[in-house]
Design a protein around this nucleic acid. Structure first.
Length: 265
DNA sequence: ATGCCAGTTTCAAACTGA
């Protein structure tokens, strides 16, 4: 059993790469983030040709998450328990964004999540990020009671440890490395979820994101922010996990690489 | 300090990303 997570930064723009990656990596389940398309605009037919079903949760321009599975797809849940919304800076009403989707895939219960960025520690988006993580914990804690392999995979927009960014000094006063964000990850771990740390295919650290700008990828100025959390049943079945940095190479790449987790299930 | 690059959308300046 192979599961994976990938922030594709627009499923429309990434469709050729998505199709070829599904063929080559052949995951049984793939959690996607940043679809940047409405749920009914997801390229369902293109992945169906490869034998995959899709459950998508998206509204259009931003965000959007999906679960793609070839081992079954049922009991789909869109959104978290008591999920907070966000009011844009222009004063418009608060809206709940499409950032989480859960589904049962074969013997697994999985969530694909796109945690809010936070923008700046002083910005309202940062408080929203922390509230959103509380709702994620509540949802996970409630579902963890079931004695089935359970996982939460996605773009957490948090580097769990100092060595998960290329240079900590560059992150002074910024989001993604703060104590309050890391504490939220600790709460997930206290609830019984383990961080499945992938191996890098090159260099020392398993970074999953490199900015498009400033030659960040060739300089390996990366971050590990795409994470896979699993309960004891799932984490205990892991036989291998790696970051597919090859997918970050070349023209038309997402700025995130897929994280692949192999399980003996 | 700012933009770097990429993708999106009232089609093109503005927003988001991390």
């Amino acid at each position: 059993m192979r599961i994976a997570t990938w922030n594709v930064n627009s499923v429309g723009a990434r469709l050729p790469r998505l199709v070829s990656w599904l063929r080559s990596a052949a995951p049984d389940v793939l959690c996607l983030q940043e679809l940047k398309c409405a749920a009914d605009s997801f390229p369902t037919d293109e992945v169906a040709e490869l034998g995959y079903e899709v459950a998508a949760h998206g509204t259009g321009r931003w965000n959007g998450v999906a679960i793609v599975s070839r081992v079954g797809l049922s009991d789909v849940t869109r959104g978290l328990r008591d999920e907070p919304g966000y009011a844009a800076d222009d004063g418009s009403d608060e809206t709940v964004e499409p950032r989480a989707i859960g589904a049962t895939c074969g013997d697994l219960r999985l969530w694909s999540v796109y945690v809010p960025n936070g923008r700046d520690v002083e910005h309202p988006h940062f408080a929203y990020k922390l509230r959103w993580l509380e709702a994620l914990h509540a949802t996970a804690a409630a579902e963890l009671a079931a004695s089935v392999p359970f996982g939460v995979l996605g773009d957490f927009n948090i580097a769990p440890a100092d060595h998960d960014v290329w240079d900590l000094a560059e992150f002074a006063q910024t989001t993604h490395i703060t104590e309050s964000e890391r504490k939220a990850l600790g709460v997930l771990q206290d609830a019984g979820l383990r961080d499945i740390v992938p191996r890098p295919l090159k260099y020392d650290q398993p970074f999953t994101y490199w900015d498009y700008r400033g030659l960040a990828f060739p300089k390996n100025k990366g971050m590990r922010i795409d994470l896979a959390y699993g309960n004891a049943q799932l984490a205990g079945a892991v036989t291998d996990a790696y970051v597919d940095r090859e997918e970050r190479k070349g023209k038309g790449a997402s700025d995130h690489a897929p994280v692949v987790v192999d399980l003996s299930l």
